[in-house]
């Protein structure tokens, strides 16, 4: 786990240094490495994907300005820097209800949009979601498993409560949840590949 952190810090430092030196490829790498997680964070707060993507666009515009001019004092803290900017942008947007999108005269962000690809679990339409959910439910043969999933993921009940209600051991709960996730992952992969 610490390795992940140390690697992340090294990559962050490298990206910040390269961007300051004018390496445009590093700017694209910055976007590819951090945009997905930033969109997730903002999406969690807004429940609006379009708004989340706009906030992250603005975040990168601001961050690139700072990075190019070397105004990030601790390059290893690049993720915290980006997160802070994204939350500030969102906060400002909440306050101002600013609907006008920031202009991008150099077209830099539009170039980045070309590289933008949806996350592995991005599902666009309500119909797709319902299809996947139905298939998932169909693949859980036991009514108890379906109920567990529904209580936990949709109802927000906690594990202990569900175990009590369904007379389950914690280990059984973990197994059912794990199986359900694996099945959903498979369904999604098949769905994504058009199968």
């Amino acid at each position: 786990m610490q390795d992940t952190l140390h690697t992340g810090e090294t990559v962050a430092r490298d990206l910040a240094t390269r961007i300051r030196a004018g390496d445009r490829l590093a700017e694209t790498e910055l976007w590819q490495r951090y945009s997905r997680s930033l969109v997730l964070m903002i999406l969690k707060r807004t429940r609006d994907r379009a708004q989340a993507e706009d906030v992250v666009q603005d975040c990168f515009r601001i961050a690139l300005g700072h990075l190019r001019s070397g105004r990030l004092e601790q390059p290893g803290a690049l993720p915290a820097f980006l997160r802070g900017i994204a939350l500030n942008v969102l906060s400002t947007e909440f306050r101002d209800r600013q609907r006008e999108r920031v202009t991008d005269p150099q077209g830099e962000l539009m170039a980045m949009r070309v590289d933008e690809s949806p996350g592995p679990y991005e599902i666009h339409s309500e119909h797709e979601r319902r299809t996947l959910a139905r298939r998932l439910m169909e693949q859980l043969p036991m009514a108890r498993d379906r109920e567990l999933l529904n209580r936990y993921l949709v109802g927000g009940q906690d594990k202990a409560e569900i175990c009590r209600a369904l007379a389950l051991e914690p280990g059984q709960f973990d197994r059912v949840l794990h199986r359900a996730k694996e099945r959903f992952r498979e369904l999604f992969n098949r769905h994504g590949s058009g199968a």
Binding site: G119, P120, R129, A133
Partner: peptide, 27 residues
Amino acid sequence: ELRLMDDPALLDEVELEQAMVDSLRAL
């Protein structure tokens, strides 16, 4: 959230669970 930014496996797991929640809610 900082960990999410540096741990693609964790990010995948979170996105997967969010997708499951959203999908089940769509039923």
